[in-house]
Design a protein around this nucleic acid. Structure first.
Lengths: 261, 261
DNA sequence: CGTTGAATTGACACCGTTCAACGACAGTGG
DNA sequence: CCACTGTCGTTGAACGGTGTCAATTCAACG
């Protein structure tokens, strides 16, 4: 993260951040309001409520969940640097709840301010659009993993993805990462039960892949873990096969002028 | 569909179409290239290929799928009126394949033309952004259904959602809808096997909910079907609770001026 | 030290997979 | 007209992954 951009320095880090000009980065930073802190389980946004501002997560984890008939399904996890409800800017009402997992630090921009800024900055608007499409790509990967993998591999996939995303924003450790996730949360992510998650965690431990305990994940063999769940980070649009280098990239001014909108 | 807009008349029909001004509707129509037709199983776009144009589906069904290790997972179904690869406009490369299910009619716009148009039409850009967010909302619902519902309800959910979406664009029937989906496709959507799908279809038939045969779905009791899979169309952002009526709506010019970006 | 939420373990039932075989049907070529 | 072929749909039986229920242990905290 850039130290002089404490609120937005992690936004798109490792992905398309290089496509933002320095001026755009500063503009976004200036748009954000004061930093707020919330404790665990704080609900930042409830389903169907009118959304009037969008929030960037600076520290901590936020989950996006839907609860129906007592059953909770977590449909997305947000890590530092994520614009957690940017889609509220266009959708106005969300179809899910946003909840802090552990303690979080966030900062917001009102939709009025954002709209005024984007009216003058079509390229920045494209960047934000891109950011919401990244989320959709992660959604598709989750559908894929829910449909194809068995519970043990789904669980491994959660760890592999989170680790990679925390890598992007410099919040990982050498052999894993910290997270406030509980076994119950893992169950609601993987679409299984806490009891079974517990057994799967034991399996992962005994297979020397990953160890989960008290808010920390240690990975014994990243390669083994990622192979087990067929994890390939392409869909995160980092520096791999699918990386975006073309018209959104300011280093390619010709195309950019033609294609910025 | 508006008869004078044969290519784009169904785009966002039933959802936010009313937020497009007549001029914007005509502009979009003019942007689209010639109509093309493809037969069943035609691959419109392959994973990781560079995308240089975006396509609107006029007739037929297109699936978005990922194939890994011989297993295919369908992560999205597109129906007439859908902008099938609008996200390619910003992502440049897709992380999945696009395949025609039955015969399809499509029309495309090059990213250059689209970018030039959107540079002058920020409100239209917001509309297109919104359209991609609708897709993401559908993705989240799929994650929800994969995580929470058992296979029989997942299958019912596919029917309920498709019927509703075909309703939006006037392609449904009184008691169901036509679709080129095969049992194998249903399996790859629901994350189960063709054999089991076959048994589930029998169950749905015997429970007087829906009958699937030779490319047509008859629904005996829509209410029973939707209750069985807890289907609630909110997430499709039609006229329900989550409907968008605020700043994107041109009938509300005050807010719109402030918020159009 | 009692309380509470979370993690762990065991037994058992069931949802869904797998393998194998068969039936229905359309297209093709003789 | 029929035989052949391939695709899709249908059915049965055995197996195993996962859910459910219940009880127990553990960690954190006042």
């Amino acid at each position: 993260m850039q130290d002089d951009l404490p609120k937005t320095g992690n936004f798109l880090a490792g992905r398309l951040r290089h496509a933002m000009s320095r001026r755009e980065q500063e503009l976004l930073e200036e748009l954000m309001g004061p930093v707020r802190e919330y404790g665990p389980d704080h609900v930042l946004q409830r389903r169907a409520e009118l959304v009037s501002e969008s929030t960037i997560l600076m520290d901590g984890f936020i989950i996006r969940s839907v609860t129906e008939g007592g059953q909770r399904q977590i449909v997305e996890i947000n890590v530092p640097g994520d614009f957690v409800d940017l889609h509220g800017f266009a959708l106005k009402r969300l179809d899910h709840d946003l909840t802090a997992l552990g303690p979080v630090r966030v900062t917001s921009v009102s939709h009025i301010d954002l709209a005024n800024a984007l009216a003058k900055e079509p390229h920045l608007a494209r960047i934000l659009w891109f950011a919401t499409l990244l989320e959709a790509a992660i959604h598709r990967e989750w559908i894929l993993k829910m449909g194809q993998l068995r519970a043990d591999a789904r669980l491994a996939h959660v760890f592999a993805e989170l680790w990679q995303r925390l890598d992007f924003v410099g919040r990982s450790r050498r052999n894993g990462f910290d997270t406030p996730l509980k076994q119950t949360d893992l169950a609601d992510i993987c679409g299984t039960t806490p009891v079974y998650i517990n057994r799967l965690l034991r399996d992962l431990r005994e297979a020397d892949m990953a160890e989960f305990r008290r808010g920390r994940v240690w990975v014994s063999s990243r390669e083994k873990l990622e192979r087990h769940c067929r994890f390939s980070p392409d869909y995160l649009y980092g520096q791999g096969t699918l990386a975006v280098r073309d018209e959104l990239d300011p280093e390619n001014p010709d195309v950019r002028t033609a294609a910025t909108g």
